[in-house]
Design a protein around this nucleic acid. Structure first.
Length: 495
RNA sequence: GGUCCUGUAGCCGAGUGGCUAGGCAAAGCUCUGCAAAAGCUUCUACACCGGUUCGAAUCCGGUCGGGACCUCCA
């Protein structure tokens, strides 16, 4: 059973074989830190976090590089535009690096709340100006770029004569030329598809660096080429990002790498689909995005309530990463309840004791459990199908709960089956899916609850239901659920 | 205009030609002092029209919706 990954380049699932045995190099385009990340951005990072975690689970030693874009983005399509950081900084009368710092910290905080693992390396564009100048020089030397008045452009039409430029998204040059809107005003570019590798800065620019072509700043696409090469080499295994990056950004990255190193940078190109609201893509420019902060506090007109970070993570796991996912309160509330059901069963499963004698062995049930559990790896190997894994997990929930309630005898499945079930549930829920219990694990609270449960048990024994109901109802009012279980036991959790 | 994706029960969603995914909601039953939780049932859908096939949600063609990208965007 081997891992298959859908490759945007070939438009089909391919068997994944790393370039170096047991090692995987993966580069994912990170955020541009001039504003808060919205939930749509988070989806991509959650998807790649799970891909990263699964590769680690499979035993690969993974170097996961995700950049921070803190320089170089232009406003609009005019190449003489200000970059986003300078523009915002001037507006707010702060240093550009203050903007960068603020939103980088915010981004990391959100990633942590969503329980995304930090990447192995998180390079910044401003920290790799020298590398970007080097690669630009090489592309110039190789003849795929030209200088106009201190700005360096990539010559797309020349490149396309040798290698297909639109290969990633299956576009022909003629179609691209036809589809592009007419450029307004003066233009120093030779071809309308040409893009800037290095941009000459006006004296008033806040962020600029010296280069062989004078003071300037790097174009957007060049940073990923420079940083991926530096940390992963000229060719590596996986390059990922949101689907919206494929047609322009990733297309240009391939062209840059080919023009500089005569190789396509990555074997596998992976693209995650968009998060939509009412069927339309969530984006900064449309202003229909939710900030994670708004989601976690419920402080947004379109939100009926607050949702926990783990609910959001689980919500995204229920869909395949290449499908669009539509946001709605109803769907999120369904996820919240579903996750609770799954997690409660997991807590029960952890407590089940493995029995040694199989007196009540039920071969059919045992086979069913094994089949469902073995499906986890099988589904993940099929292009990371988290939704199907969850489907199997939910099918196992009644089995787990029935064993606990004695409806199914614990020894009706083999001891090995039960321990496999326990081991895989833990590995998947905690390690691969990166879910965690949102309930506070507080010793003081646990102690208090133990006391309350004892008092309530006593009052129930004395048939003092007024007291037992009072305890249960008042706890419910502050968000603690007390559950009566079979045999007079009680358990609790936070709602 | 070009390149693609997509249309699945009340809602969200997975689906590799034959084997009712799953979750949420709803209804009934069991358990229970009551409730919740849990267990067991019920709700058996694939936009439309053709075609291929013994057999199509799945493959092919067409029609009609919806969406993304081609411009900064995960």
């Amino acid at each position: 059973m081997a891992l298959k990954i859908y490759n945007t380049l070939s438009r089909e699932k391919e068997l994944f074989t790393p370039l170096t045995p047991d090692h995987v190099g993966m580069y994912v385009c990170g955020p541009t830190v001039y504003s808060d990340v919205h939930l749509g951005n988070c989806r991509t990072f959650i998807s790649f976090d799970i891909i990263y975690r699964y590769l680690v689970y499979l035993g690969y030693k993974v170097r996961y590089v995700r950049n921070i874009t803190d320089a170089g983005h232009l406003e609009g399509d005019r190449d003489e535009g200000d970059d986003k950081f300078s523009k915002l900084a001037r507006l707010q009368k702060v240093e550009p690096m203050e903007i960068v710092q603020k939103y980088t910290v915010g981004f990391h905080h959100v990633m942590q709340l969503l329980n995304n693992l930090p990447p192995s390396i998180e390079p910044t564009a401003t920290g790799h100006i020298a590398e970007q100048i080097e690669i630009t020089k090489q592309i110039l030397a190789n003849g795929y770029a030209y200088e106009v008045n201190g700005t360096i452009y990539f010559d797309v039409e020349k490149y396309n004569k040798e290698l297909p430029y639109g290969i990633l998204t299956n576009r022909k040059m003629e179609d691209l030329l036809e589809g592009t809107r007419e450029l307004g005003g003066q233009d120093e570019k030779r071809g309308r598809l040409d893009f800037a590798l290095w941009i000459k800065a006006k004296p008033e620019h806040l962020m600029q660096w010296p280069s062989p072509w004078g003071m300037g700043f790097p174009g957007w696409h060049i940073e990923c080429s420079a940083m991926s090469e530096k940390y992963l080499g000229k060719k590596f295994d996986i390059h990922g990002g949101g689907m919206d990056l494929a047609a322009t950004h990733h297309t240009n990255e391939i062209a840059q790498s080919q023009a500089c190193y005569h190789t396509s940078p990555a074997n596998f190109w992976m693209h995650t689909n968009m998060l939509t609201v009412n069927g339309t893509r969530m984006s900064k420019s449309l202003g229909n995005g939710f900030l994670p902060e708004e989601l976690f506090t419920g402080n947004h007109p379109l939100l009926e309530k607050a949702y926990a970070p783990m609910t959001v993570r689980f919500f995204m796991l229920q869909t395949h990463y290449r499908s669009t996912l539509d946001f709605s309160n109803e769907a999120l509330q369904a996820s919240e309840k579903g996750l609770k059901r799954l997690w409660d069963a997991y807590e029960v499963l952890k407590q089940l004791a493995v029995s040694n004698g199989q007196l009540a062995m039920d071969a059919e049930l045992d086979a069913k459990v094994n089949k469902l559990v073995n499906g986890f790896d099988e589904f993940m190997n099929d292009d990371f199908n988290t939704a199907k894994v969850l489907g199997n997990m939910f099918e196992l929930v009644p089995v787990i709960n029935s064993i606990k309630d004695g409806l199914i005898k614990a020894d009706s499945i083999a001891a090995a089956t039960l321990s496999l079930l326990q081991q895989k549930f833990k590995a998947y829920l905690e390690n691969v899916f990166g879910l965690k219990n949102s309930a506070a694990n507080n010793e003081v609270l646990s102690g208090v609850m133990e006391l309350l449960i004892e008092v309530r048990k006593e009052s129930k024994t004395k048939k003092d239901f007024a007291t037992s109901d009072k305890i249960r109802n008042q706890l419910a009012a502050i968000g603690i659920n007390l559950k009566d279980e079979k045999g007079g036991e009680m358990s609790w959790d936070l709602s």
